[in-house]
Structures are given as C-alpha cells and as structure tokens.
Simulated scan of single mutants.
Amino acid sequence: MTKVDTGFAGQSFGSRALYRVIRTLACGFTQLYTRMSIEGREHLPATGGYVIAPVHRSYVDTPISACISRRRIRYMGKDSMWKFAGVGKLISALGAFPVSRGSVDREALMRCLAVLDAGEPLVLFPEGERKDGPAVQPLFDGAAYLASKSGVPIIPVGIAGSDRVMPRGAKFVFPRKVKIVIGAPLRVEVAENGRASRNSIKATTAQLHVEIQRLYDEAQSKIS
C-alpha cells in the first residue's frame, strides 16, 4: 500500500494543533457543503516538499486545495494580512506566508523556494489568476522552475465544480458538488550538474498543461 502523507515536520506543537483544529472544521464543512470527493491521494509524497499545481476557476480553490492533504499546505498572501498580530498568527498557522506587493516576483520566489526546501507542500496556480471555461489556459513556468530549483515533484490537480460553488462575481458560496482528481507526480529533467535547462523547464510546463487538462476533464465528467 502506498503511504499517504500525514506529517507535520518543522512546525511547533501550537501551530500543528491550531492547524489541525481549523483544518478539521474548515475541511469538514467544505466537504459536507460541496459533497466533495477526492481521487488520487496516493500520488501525494509522504514526506518532503512538492508543488501542488491545480486548475484555477474560483476563489474557493485555495481552501479546497487544503483538503487534499493532512499536512499543512502553504500559500502566498499579501503582507497587509499580517497587520494585526492575531490575524497574522492564525493565517500563518494555516499555511499562508507574507509577500510584499511592491516586490512580489522576487520575494515570492525566495519564499516559495524556502518553503519547498523546508520540506513543505506549496500550492501554486500555474494559470496565474483564476480563469473561465473548460480549457486550461497557457501556463506560467513558475511551477516547473521552482520544482527544478528545489528538486521536488509537481503534483497536477483537477478541480471541478468550484466555479459553481462560487462563480465569478458571486457574493455567496453555493452548495454545489466538487470533484478533485490528483495526478501522478511530474519531475523536471536536470543535467549532470543538477540544473535544468530552459528547454527542460518549458517541456515540463507543456507536460503539466496536458496533465492538468486531462485531470480537469476527468473531474468534470464525474460531477454531472
């Protein structure tokens, strides 16, 4: 049997406890409210960092992504969210880390690499901002680049139904069915010196695009 990830390495007891309580409540509600079902958890590495690369059709894709693993999953957040100490402590425990708006590209890169090097899973939407429609849009190379620099796998994820749970412009969250399909890990091919060429990163991004589209189509077919 394939081991599924359950660890909390590198986190304080208080942080782990807070995460478990909030995650249990949030994911329990989300799964019941959306009748969520998840396939492919066996593809998640048991230990170490990895990049979770989901399709992105709704703001609720972020909390939905938190339900795929019991480990604390990391996300980027605007540094203004840490203005108040109590709020900052809470969202940090839930996996978010601050990035300054004025230096997003460089700071985000450094922080994402630090998260992966620390052995933690990181969510990165390779389409960038949320998109509309059944076709996965052209992907940025960020997921492949980070994976190549940290030597971690990329986990493609298809999420179907989130655009009906919270459509673009909606002010409410609706009780619609959500289906998640997690794909097999992808790795960036590296040279003997341990570095990935630009062509290798581009090739991995193209492969990732194909996989996310396949998983998204599969997930969509299972919620009708």
Rank of each mutant, 00 (worst) to 15 (best):
G158C: 11
S69Y: 03
V190L: 11
D217Y: 02
L122Q: 04
R35W: 05
A135R: 14
A17P: 04
V152W: 02
F174P: 01
K179G: 10
G102S: 15
L94N: 14
K83W: 06
K83S: 13
Y216W: 12
D132S: 15
R16S: 12
S12T: 15
L109P: 02
T47W: 00
S103T: 10
V152E: 00
E42V: 03
L215D: 07
R187K: 13
S69A: 14
C27R: 01
V157H: 05
L122D: 01
R111K: 15
V51S: 02
P54G: 04
R71C: 01
V178Q: 05
P121I: 02
E127I: 11
K89P: 00
G77D: 06
G133L: 11
L122T: 08
L109T: 14
F8C: 01
V21G: 07
D105R: 10
P121Q: 04
Y216F: 15
G48Q: 11
G142C: 11
A66W: 02
A114E: 14
G86L: 13
E189S: 15
I182T: 04
P54N: 06
P45N: 09
A203I: 04
A170Y: 00
V152A: 04
P45M: 08
A135K: 15
K202F: 14
A160K: 06
F29Y: 15
V210H: 12
A26Q: 11
V181F: 12
K131M: 05
Y19A: 05
G86W: 10
L116R: 10
G194S: 05
K89C: 05
F13P: 00
D5F: 11
I68A: 10
P185N: 04
A26R: 02
Y216L: 10
